[in-house]
Amino acid sequence: MPSYAEIANDVLRLMESVGEQAPGVVLHDYLSKLQQYSGRDTILYATNWITDEAHTSNEALITNGDLYGFMRMMRDLKTKKLDLILHSPGGSVESTEAIVSYIRAKFKNVRIIIPYAAMSAAAMLACSSNCLVMGKHSSIGPTDPQFIIPTRTGMHIMSAQFLISEFQEAQSVSEKHPGRLGAWLPLLGQYPPGLIQKCISSQKLSVELVQKWLARYMFENESAAVKKSKKISEIMSSSKKYHSHGRRISREECKRIGLKVTDLEDEQEFQDLVLSVFHAANTMFQYTPVNKIIMNHLGNTVVETLPTPR
């Protein structure tokens, strides 16, 4: 398997003749080789979110626009089997739901390959597969909803469950000791009206979608599909279990909680091709302004770039 450095050197040499198109040419080549090996339609969805500056960028998140990207990717695909290579920090739950519905309207069997990490809503997307493929280094993340809240000290990302628990604690204190409510008012006054109901609704949606997808696809035709799916969806959305939304759920933990996972290392050539695709995608992030890429093995491509600083 070529290393990241070797693939980057190939891209740099090719850039001398074709310029910024070189990373895309190399990436398409590896995607095509992967499809030829597997015999399954193949799509890459990857964003540049590993560096700190990209991690917090809205351009790295799953959005409504990504549905258009998947529509472009799937237009010329012919089979009922899909390999989706997924590398994402997550994003909109509603956009993820739309993407899953669109993919599942076409493909009977979906295998989602995680070469590095799929977090938050991307982990929810992973749960819409028939099977996950993960390496020993791969991970998914908790699915508990998060909210960006404006406060007096700036914008903060907070867990829906944390906010619900905080309001419940304030309610309990005010009922038992009404005189202490004043201490809570400055804190609670920062939050917009309706926030707690929105937290409760988002939490329910996250659990319900994961449960539905697992039962319908990963555990299809299993007698205990509903029970198993409910248990897994509740575990994955539990902020009390994982304590941090950025916590990594390893391949072994995925297996322990009941997800169907195939080891990437089971087939050496397949592993080499998957990681080469991942490395090639990262060269595109390194050498071009591209911040998100959706590409299929036919070379159909949709990219998004970071906005140019003013």
Rank of each mutant, 00 (worst) to 15 (best):
97 E>I: 13
194 G>V: 07
200 I>Q: 13
143 T>F: 06
185 L>R: 14
93 V>W: 07
208 E>C: 00
215 A>C: 02
157 I>C: 11
179 G>V: 08
8 A>D: 05
180 R>H: 11
244 S>W: 10
235 I>Y: 00
162 F>K: 09
119 M>F: 10
169 E>W: 13
70 F>V: 05
305 T>W: 13
113 I>T: 12
282 N>G: 12
287 Y>V: 12
261 V>I: 07
130 N>R: 04
82 L>T: 11
217 Y>M: 01
113 I>E: 12
275 L>D: 12
97 E>T: 09
23 P>Q: 06
25 V>A: 04
249 I>N: 02
80 K>M: 08
106 K>I: 14
284 M>K: 11
112 I>R: 07
72 R>P: 01
203 Q>I: 02
20 E>Q: 12
121 A>K: 02
23 P>M: 02
136 K>H: 14
159 S>L: 04
260 K>G: 00
169 E>I: 12
247 R>H: 09
221 N>P: 01
29 D>A: 07
269 E>N: 03
207 V>Q: 11
230 K>Y: 05
8 A>H: 06
62 I>V: 14
100 V>L: 04
191 Y>T: 09
19 G>V: 11
168 Q>H: 13
278 F>Q: 13
27 L>A: 04
9 N>A: 14
155 M>W: 02
164 I>W: 08
182 G>V: 12
92 S>H: 06
74 M>D: 07
15 M>L: 02
23 P>N: 01
110 V>D: 08
39 G>M: 08
204 K>C: 00
90 G>P: 12
28 H>G: 15
69 G>I: 05
174 S>H: 08
93 V>L: 15
16 E>I: 08
232 I>K: 01
218 M>E: 02
102 Y>Q: 11
167 F>E: 15
229 S>Q: 07
115 P>E: 10
85 I>C: 07
171 Q>K: 15
289 P>Q: 08
260 K>Y: 05
226 V>Y: 07
214 L>A: 03
156 H>A: 10
277 V>P: 06
156 H>M: 06
114 I>Q: 09
200 I>S: 05
128 S>E: 03
275 L>I: 13
11 V>A: 09
262 T>M: 10
178 P>Q: 12
41 D>T: 06
152 R>F: 05
217 Y>Q: 00
176 K>E: 15
135 G>N: 11
95 S>R: 04
211 Q>P: 00
202 S>R: 07
203 Q>R: 13
214 L>I: 01
25 V>N: 03
171 Q>T: 09
265 E>Y: 01
239 S>D: 09
81 K>W: 04
25 V>W: 06
185 L>N: 09
251 R>S: 09
202 S>T: 05
254 C>I: 03
98 A>T: 06
100 V>F: 02
256 R>N: 10
122 A>V: 10
109 N>S: 14
190 Q>N: 08
66 D>Y: 00
97 E>M: 02
